[in-house]
């Protein structure tokens, strides 16, 4: 059993070293457990614990914390799996897939991941304006302008943080989050 775990560990490490390219090239089912989508989904899921939203972000006190994924159904599926039955910041978590073509559907999200489709992104960001939504864009997917941006550093998926932007959106980011960001832009 320990041997099996050690093997998985090594596989996981390799996946990181070779990055998404390798993942994209090889559609082997053995690697799907550590795919780029899975890593990003896990990050999105975990982000909920490192951010504080104002009460105005929720329509009602018992409202769930929604993680909305635009345009990456694979990521959505993983997040949906991770969040099922889970809590963060005292709320149930829920995953939603939003349509990039319909920016009006994103106003009730707390985390909005814009994974691809750079054309629709400006409209969606504009729709959100200064609403308390943690926007996450993905440079690998060609999207920009989110409070948090996934970047690829040395084959690892990391992120940068735009602090000013987070303040504009009335969000408080944990210092632990800032500590692990590749860069924190003002």
């Amino acid at each position: 059993m320990t041997h099996a775990r050690a093997l998985r560990w090594r596989v996981f490490a390799c996946a990181k070293i070779f990055g998404t390219a390798l993942v994209l090239m090889m559609a082997a089912p053995a690697l799907s457990a550590v795919s780029e989508a899975e890593i990003k989904a896990a990050y999105l899921y975990k982000l909920a614990s490192f951010v504080r939203w104002p009460d105005s972000a929720f329509v009602e006190p018992a409202a769930p914390l929604r993680i909305c994924i635009a345009g990456r159904p694979d990521v959505y599926h993983v997040v949906d799996g991770l969040t099922r039955g889970q809590d963060a910041a005292g709320r149930h978590l829920s995953a939603e897939s939003v349509n990039p073509a319909r920016p009006d559907t994103v106003a009730h999200c707390q985390i909005l991941y814009l994974g691809e489709g750079e054309t629709a992104v400006p409209a969606m960001l504009a729709q959100i304006a200064q609403a308390p939504v943690l926007t996450v864009t993905d440079r690998a997917g060609g999207t920009h302008g989110g409070i948090i941006e996934f970047v690829l550093v040395g084959g690892n998926i990391r992120f940068t943080i735009h602090r000013q932007s987070s303040e504009v959106h009335q969000l408080v980011l944990s210092s632990k989050l800032l500590a692990v960001a590749v860069s924190v832009e003002p």
């Binding site: 890593i39 990050y43 975990k46 690892n156 990391r158 944990s174 632990k176 692990v180």
Partner: peptide
């Protein structure tokens, strides 16, 4: 444990 929380959450080995 406090310090390493972010690193664990986001696979930041160097931190």
């Amino acid at each position: 444990a406090e310090g390493v929380a972010g690193a664990l959450a986001f696979d930041d080995r160097s931190t």
